[in-house]
Simulated assay, not measured.
Amino acid sequence: MRARRGDRIVLAGEQVGHPVRDGEIIEVRGEQGAPPYVVRWSDGHEATFFPGPGAVVRTRGETEAQPDVPAPTAAQPVHEWSIRVSLYEHQDDTTAQAVLVSGPAEQTDASGSAHRSARDPASPRIGDEIAVARALRHLSDKLFERARQDVENATGEHDVDIRAS
């Protein structure tokens, strides 16, 4: 992971239902952008931070124009969103928590679950797939609803229908 001062760091909740945490990197203490970082979290707390596998760095260039960065071309993405999926298992239950990070302090989360019946074979991958699929479907539903509300607010129309196809 590489970062620089002014970039943002986003962490998904460690357990289902826990909030997403984000902050601004105010100091880079490692060589060539490597950790550790001093982060000013959105709650105002500052701490030295060593990011783990659940951390996502959002560079300044992703959220604001940089004068020395060329404008995007057809081969370069204009925006990048990240989805992090965490799986939790307890006995025969699997829960997936999906977090979409679409901006430095903008995220949407959803969860899905699966339960293995006693008569089903013990195959954790199947429970993972079902729980993740359900979490992503719920995330998709939230995005469609948010887009519908945005269209209504922008146009003044009511009962806007946005299809999934």
Rank of each mutant, 00 (worst) to 15 (best):
E27C: 02
R60F: 07
A147Q: 02
R146M: 08
E64C: 10
P70H: 06
R29W: 02
D93F: 07
D22Q: 07
D150G: 02
Y37K: 12
T94W: 03
V28I: 04
I25C: 02
G23A: 04
A122Q: 14
V101I: 10
D92A: 14
P35I: 15
P67L: 04
S113W: 11
A98T: 10
D128H: 15
R116C: 05
V39I: 13
H79M: 14
A118S: 10
D22C: 12
P67A: 10
P53D: 05
Q107A: 13
L100I: 03
G103C: 02
E62S: 09
D109A: 11
G44R: 06
A105H: 15
V151T: 14
T95N: 00
V28D: 03
G23V: 03
W81I: 08
D43T: 10
S117V: 05
A96H: 00
T48G: 02
Q76S: 13
Q149I: 13
I25N: 05
V56T: 09
V28K: 12
R137P: 00
G127L: 14
G23C: 01
V99C: 07
H90K: 11
R40F: 12
E64K: 07
S82N: 10
H158C: 11
R84N: 06
E24I: 11
D128W: 06
E80K: 11
A154G: 06
A133G: 13
I126Y: 12
R148V: 08
H79W: 08
V151L: 06
A71R: 04
A98P: 14
P121V: 15
A114Q: 13
